[in-house]
Design a protein around this nucleic acid. Structure first.
Length: 425
RNA sequence: GCGAGCGUCGCCAAGCGGUUAAGGCAGCGGCUUGUGGUGCCGCCAUACGGGGGUUCGAUUCCCCUCGCUCGCC
């Protein structure tokens, strides 16, 4: 059975584990959003985690032709089958998508953001709710980004030094300091399954000297993150930097791998560099990562780039693209992008993508989606976001299946009729 | 019927003797990669209600005409 050709009963069953913490809606049934208060002196972390977790990563199959592998990363909130795309839920919500719908896309691990949640509503509110899982209602694995990227990409930075970053809150102008220790404290309070190291992501282009300095700082900060991180049941991932400089990348990969953390990420891509540059970095760095750990390529979520990365042994991806494109009216169909605003869809009463199992494609036509987007109806944004997420998730799942069956290739394109992996689509 | 005003892109609207005839909306396309529900970038009137004149030159001045608006009978 294709992973996507499931009946609605099967779909409901698949969703159930992700929403088991939610009330059934039956009359008289009560639901307490927060656990019982902890005893005096106990850590203030959410109590839904019990003890240390090994965060095992098991590789179940390897591609004979490339470095690709498929496997399973085990977290306290369940498995993440790799390769896998991870939807971005910046403010503890994947914009426009409700939890049951999110589960239907095939998402297993979801991202949230330290920077945004610290500013609003503040990690204390999340912690008092019982942690991020309880707060947002997602019972599957969660990962929090450290806030490092946002400080550099969105923030009006006041000062950056070896200690950390001082910036002004775009919300109320308040002066905020973020350091490795602070980021760890916030992420521990949020309580995701995976916390990311606080890093410095240099812009593109940047001089070799500037990138080298950012690397040194990122490595020093990683050490401080490791020291500060003390939350059972939460893994810490280090981040490799180095921009487009091979020597710096190699050095960074060596240093970060040396910390022997449960996972390793590659950052500093998708920052405006040409895609060919990204391909070079992926091809260079992939082979340098410790074989037995999950490899997470940060910020990459276009099909071609993910396939190239998977071929170099990357396992996890995240990207705002599917939801941002969806909100703005663009649908991913195969490897094309369709702007649903375009007049050519006005009278097109066929499904968006007949091969896609998502809600938008099952229930609605291109003409209807076109109408919703043109009318700026919020349902249009939701449906396209859902569709785009579904497309990326089924693509990464199809890669996994193809790896297991030995029919994966770097130019993986299962939607093409002649593709040896067509049956995985 | 008389008086006044107005008619510039689908809509709103500058220009008031020499302009590549602003701009906005709409429309037609494009862009967005560890997320400010945004944003950005192209394209879109040889044409100024119609017809005559004056002038080297008229969307801009004059006459006629058509249409709309507001007053007064």
């Amino acid at each position: 059975m294709s992973p996507d050709s499931q009946s609605s009963a099967e779909a409901a069953a698949a969703v159930a584990p992700f929403i088991s913490g939610l009330p059934s809606g039956r009359p008289g049934e009560s639901w307490s959003p927060a656990p019982q208060p902890a005893a005096a002196g106990a850590p203030t972390f959410p109590t839904i985690q019990e003890g240390a977790h090994p965060f095992r990563f098991t590789i179940t199959a390897r591609c004979p032709h490339t470095r690709a592998r498929c496997g399973c990363f085990h977290t306290p909130h369940g498995p993440v089958h790799t390769p896998r795309f991870m939807p971005v839920g910046t403010a503890a919500t994947v914009k426009g998508v409700a939890i049951p719908q999110l589960a239907e896309t095939g998402a297993e691990m979801v991202l949230a953001n330290t920077y945004h949640l610290h500013l609003q509503p503040g990690e204390a509110v999340v912690a008092e709710a019982g942690g991020l899982h309880r707060f947002m209602g997602w019972q599957g694995p969660l990962l929090t980004d450290s806030g490092g990227f946002q400080v550099f990409s969105l923030g009006a930075i006041n000062r950056i030094d070896d200690d950390g970053v001082v910036f002004r809150s775009p919300r109320d102008g308040a002066r905020i300091t973020l350091t490795p220790e602070r980021s760890m404290a916030i992420q521990m309070a949020l309580g995701a399954d995976v916390a990311m190291a606080f890093d410095q992501c240099p812009p593109y282009p940047a001089s070799e000297a500037d990138v080298a300095a950012a690397c040194r700082r990122t490595h020093a900060w990683l050490e401080r993150c490791v020291v500060a991180h003390a939350r059972p049941g939460q893994a810490l991932f280090g981040i490799v930097q180095g921009g487009c400089y091979p020597a710096l990348r190699a050095e960074s990969a060596r240093v970060v791998a040396g910390f022997d953390l449960p996972g390793i990420a590659v950052g500093g891509v998708s920052v405006g560099e040409p895609v060919e540059e990204m391909h070079r970095i992926v091809r260079q760095v992939g082979p340098l990562l410790p074989e037995a750990k999950p490899h997470y390529l940060m910020g990459v979520g276009s099909l071609r780039e993910m396939a190239i990365a998977v071929a170099q042994g990357f396992d996890l991806f995240d990207c705002v693209l599917p939801t941002r494109l969806g909100r703005h009216g663009t649908a991913l169909v195969g490897d094309e992008r369709w702007n649903l605003r375009n007049a050519r869809f006005r009278h097109d009463h066929t499904p968006l993508d007949p091969t896609c199992p998502c809600l938008a494609c099952r229930l609605h036509s291109r003409a209807y989606l076109h109408h919703l987007i043109r009318s700026e109806e919020m349902l249009g944004r939701t449906l396209l976001s859902l569709h785009n997420l579904t497309t990326l998730l089924r693509f990464t799942r199809a890669m996994g299946q193809a790896i297991a069956e030995g029919c994966f290739a770097e130019d993986f394109a299962p939607w093409e009729p002649g593709s040896p992996a067509a049956h995985t689509w």
